[in-house]
Structure formats: structure tokens, C-alpha cells
Design a protein around this nucleic acid. Structure first.
Lengths: 216, 216
DNA sequence: GCTTGATTCAATCGACCGTTTGAGACGATT
DNA sequence: AATCGTCTCAAACGGTCGATTGAATCAAGC
């Protein structure tokens, strides 16, 4: 077994188990056991459990965010300037839901990516600074271009709600299946994407309530 | 120190630490240390760490869901039948955000309640069956009454997105403050509530895209 | 003042944790 | 054939974990 084989086996097993049980609840012994490699291999190849977790997340998060920007570029280019709000929202949400497509049975990556927001191991902070700063700025401007009448702070809030809808769907879709007695599931990713884009775009377009009216 | 004093100290400390660090990352020694009680007191008063977690969550979740239903009843009664969509949505979101009001500095309950969806300790399953089944049904019917043209499955999805926006805001609002360079924060809960209700209600009202149009 | 039940306490249990070690296996290079 | 990195392995390290024990403490009832 070559070096890279072992690294891949560890990454695959860790991704699965981190997604199922969370970061702290998953032991290196469980990971190496599932991967069929020696316990010491994690520290040899990755240095520590935290570095392994970073590697697991980056492996999918970096290409995901690249694809988001690629799709945003594409639809801005098509529109020769300002893309439609639905296209912008779909550029953000679509690639994330696409990850759930191949992942339907195991739900490893899906749950993991949905969970990175609410977990807060020490390494999460730097991850956001590295991977999300540019992304947020690009999408902020794209949405502002679609909705010029909105204050920037309102756009921030609505982007926050968009991320919440996505993250919640990625990591707790089984809950919805339970409550809906099976009527709603992640079987048809295209349908989920359409539902989410429709909801979020409409929420983004909501007229702002003036402060005077809101507080009387 | 009386028996109930010790129980309260433990509940308070556990709530705070579970919210900050998560369930598995928080040790009984950290909890009893912060509470100023003996380590064995947790197992004596609650039986186990899991039972303690259930008690911590129920202490706030049960009154929260009661308040939601109380507010829903109130606005349905005022409207003599069908309440407005904004009122229904506010009945669900308002009480949750109100918890963040007293909690601004410590963020114990807030983060904890936002996290119960994405964490999945073994006891979470029964918790949903016990505490959420009725609630979901009541709000489902209230929303369906406001939006009779929507399929039930669409209403389920949109309720799911509403819960996602709320949970994400409860447990990761510091992230939004970071990205928005401090322009958005949870300082003014009334404003956050209004932002969220506006967004969610507009998302709920979105016209459904017909399947034919969506797939061509 | 003694008894009784409820509570607190220090000490300890076995299990599991992440990490480290040093010896061996393997393949490529000389 | 000997050498040298790269990698794997069993074993062990010191610590922390949740849970339990049995003795000490306390308050209330008689």
C-alpha cells in the first residue's frame, strides 16, 4: 500500500465518521479501524487530529467554493453585467447541494459541511478567514447589484439566512423526512435546489419595513 | 446548600458550557467545577451526563414551545380564524429570539438551542418526538391556512428553511458580526426578529414554479 | 439526644483518549 | 549487496473521561 493510499483511506473514513458522529466524538482509533490502517498513521501523515480535520474539510470546501465562484462568473458573463437574483442564489446553493447528490446513502460530506458552522473546534476560526472571506464579498456585491434598494446590513442578514437554510438542510434533512412522514426527502436533489432557491430569492426580494412603521 | 440549589447550579453551569463547547467536549468535571459542587453530584441528581443534557435542554425548550403555541393561539383568536402569515411566523421565531435577549453576554441557552438540531447525541431523537411533533403540526396547519395554494410538501420545505435560518442565527451570529465588520449583530433583538420574519414570510409566499417549467 | 433519610465528599474504578516511541519492513539508489 | 529514506507496526505513554463507592455531614422527626 503506497503512502497516498493510506492518506486517502484515512481521509475517506474520517470524513464519514466526522459527519456521522461529529469531531470530538470520533476517535482516531475508530477512524484508523474503519480505514484499515495503523493507529499511528494519522499522526505520521497529518500531524494531529485537528490537522486531519482541516484536511478533511478543505478537501471538499475548497473545490466547492471555487465552483461557486465559477458559476457566479459564468452567469455574470452571460448577463453582460448583472445576473438575475435567482442565478446568483443558485450559484451559491447549487454546488453545495450537488455534493449531496453522490452522497445520498452515507451522507458523510453533506453532514460535515452542514455542521462546520455550528461546531467550533479551535481550527474553525482560521478556516473561515481563509476560505470564506473572499466568497462572502463577491456574493455580497452580486446580490447588492440585483437589489440596489437594500441597505448593506439587510443584505448581510439575508445572506446569513440563506446560509442557515442551506446548512440546516445539509445536516438535518433526515429530520424533515421524519416530520413530513416521508413526503420530503433529499432523493431528488434538483427539486430540493429549486425549492431552496425559490424560497431564498423571494426572501431576499422582500421589501424593507421602515423603522418607523416597524417600531410603532 | 439545599438539594435544589445544587441542581440549579449544575443546570446553570452545564447550560453555559454545553452552549460554548458542545455536549461531548464538556466534561462533568468542568461543569461541577464551574458550579462549585462535587463531581458526584451530577450522577446523584441526574443519573448520567445524558440525562443532565436532557434536563438542560427541556428546561428552556418546553416553555419556549409553550410560548410559541400561546402566541399562535392568541393571533388566531384575534383574527377570528386565519391569522396573517407574518403573525404566524413571528409566533414561531419571536419566542426563540427572545431567549437571546437576556442571554446576550453569555450566549449559553442561545447557542445550545441553535445547536440541538445539528448535534445528534443519542437522546436527541426522543426529544424531537416528545417536544416538536405537536408543534410542527399546529404551525403546518396555520401556514397552510395562510397559503392554501401551496402543496403540503412545499410548506414542509419552507418551514424547514425557516428553522434553518433561526438555528443558524442562534448559534453562529458571531460569524455574521465578523463578516459584516460589526454592522450586523444581535444587540437589537427586535431588529433581528423583524429582519428574520420579513425574510421568511416573503420566502413562504414565493409562487411555486411548475415542474414543467422548472425542468426544461 | 438519638435515629433516619437525604445529601455531600474524597478517592478510586476501568475504559478510552491523542500522541509518541523504536524497531522492523519495503523499495529505490549506489 | 549494502545503504538510505519512507512508511508501517505493536506497544506503551501520561491523561482525562463518566461513573461508583463508602464514609462523613446535615437537617428533621420523635
Amino acid at each position: 500500500m503506497s503512502s497516498s493510499d493510506t492518506k486517502q483511506q484515512i481521509l475517506d473514513a474520517a470524513e464519514q465518521l466526522f459527519g456521522e458522529e461529529g469531531f470530538t466524538s470520533t476517535s482516531l482509533r475508530a477512524i484508523t479501524g474503519a480505514a484499515g490502517v495503523n493507529l499511528a498513521a494519522v499522526n505520521y501523515h497529518f500531524g494531529s487530529k485537528s490537522e486531519l480535520a482541516k484536511a478533511v474539510i478543505s478537501r471538499h470546501l475548497v473545490p466547492l467554493n471555487q465552483e461557486r465562484l465559477r458559476r457566479l462568473d459564468a452567469c455574470e458573463k452571460n448577463a453582460k453585467g448583472t445576473a438575475s437574483l435567482e442565478e446568483v442564489v443558485a450559484s451559491f446553493l447549487g454546488p453545495a447541494l450537488d455534493l449531496a447528490r453522490e452522497d445520498k446513502q452515507t451522507a458523510g460530506v453533506t453532514r460535515l459541511l452542514g455542521r462546520i458552522y455550528s461546531e467550533q473546534p479551535p481550527f474553525i476560526g482560521e478556516l473561515f478567514a481563509d476560505e470564506f472571506q473572499d466568497l462572502v464579498e463577491r456574493f455580497l456585491h452580486a446580490i447588492e447589484a440585483c437589489l440596489p434598494e437594500l441597505d448593506r446590513s439587510v443584505v448581510f442578514w439575508r445572506m446569513h439566512f440563506m446560509v442557515g437554510s442551506m446548512a440546516h438542510t445539509l445536516c438535518t434533512n433526515n429530520l424533515l423526512t421524519l416530520f413530513s412522514s416521508g413526503h420530503c426527502s433529499m432523493q431528488d436533489i434538483d427539486e430540493v435546489t429549486q425549492q431552496m432557491v425559490t424560497f431564498v430569492a423571494a426572501g431576499m426580494r422582500a421589501p424593507v419595513i421602515s423603522k418607523v412603521e416597524g417600531s410603532r
